[in-house]
């Protein structure tokens, strides 16, 4: 690496420094826009006792779900964890700690974490189990709860295109949590489908500026579809 060039050549290098007990923030919604090869590398490394922050936890054999197989996850912060039998088993047996967090609150926690805002008030979750133990405040006649920001030792991100400086462009709904995750990691690692030279991306079209990105790697992606729904051409 030299100057602003963030490109690394191996997944081993991409995830170097990840240690047991660390917090990892991941982009992705369901299996859409997940950093699938960075997840595989965490599995290969065998890092344990991880706290994972992600909207979902994959399925049994794909996405973050693969980290459940060798019990690498100690705790997960997520909004929706259905459709994953091993997850349910570990949660019910108390082997896996789960902090269910409303989806919008989760996105904002990552955004705040990356933006230097330690906590924020939101009406989401007031009067529900999510509010337990949290500060409550009335503002202009409405009740809010104080939600702390989230930061990660690592953030793992999937983007569509990048230049070598780590400027990122996402594609369609594969963007989801990725831009917020990218801001919230002490070390942010991004895998992409295409890397171009600096200057080739239109500065007006960049979703995530390279300042947030520490390491960048070119990957090949399976892009598994969770719910394949189609219509016939006529309908």
């Amino acid at each position: 690496m030299a100057g602003f060039d963030k490109v690394v050549s191996s997944y081993e290098e991409a995830m170097a420094g990840l240690e047991d007990g660390m917090t990892v923030i991941s982009g992705g919604f369901g299996l859409c826009g997940i950093p699938e090869n960075l997840i595989s590398e965490i599995k290969r490394k065998g890092t344990k006792e991880l706290t994972l922050v992600s909207n979902n936890c994959g399925v049994d054999d794909f996405g973050l779900g693969v980290l459940l197989q060798d019990r690498q996850i100690k705790k997960i912060v997520a909004s929706y964890v259905g459709e994953n039998a091993e997850f349910e088993r570990q949660m019910m047996n108390g082997e896996l700690e789960v902090e269910l967090t409303p989806q919008g609150t989760l996105a904002e926690k990552m955004r705040a974490g990356g933006a230097g805002i330690p906590a924020f008030f939101t009406a989401t979750g007031y009067g529900t189990p999510v509010a337990e133990g949290k500060e409550e405040r009335e503002i202009d006649g409405r009740m809010y709860i104080l939600e702390p920001a989230i930061k990660g030792d690592f953030a793992i991100v999937k983007a569509w295109k990048a230049d070598r400086y780590g400027n990122l462009v996402f594609r369609k709904t594969a963007r989801n949590f990725n831009p917020m995750a990218a801001t919230a990691g002490k070390i942010t690692v991004v895998e992409v489908e295409e890397i171009v030279e600096p200057g080739e991306l239109d500065p007006d079209q960049i979703h995530t500026p390279g300042i947030y990105v520490n390491r960048l790697i070119l990957g090949a992606f399976e892009k598994r579809i969770e719910q394949r729904t189609v219509r016939t051409a006529q309908s």
Binding site: R224, I225, Q227
Partner: peptide
């Protein structure tokens, strides 16, 4: 038309209507 990068909140494959926009989760919420 199936595109793995284009799903709805139920994780179903969808399409975009004319005049659609896409954005991140923080913007969405």
């Amino acid at each position: 038309e199936i595109d793995a990068d284009l799903i709805n909140a139920g994780k179903q494959t969808v399409t975009m209507a004319t005049g659609a926009s896409v954005f991140d989760s923080a913007e969405s919420f």
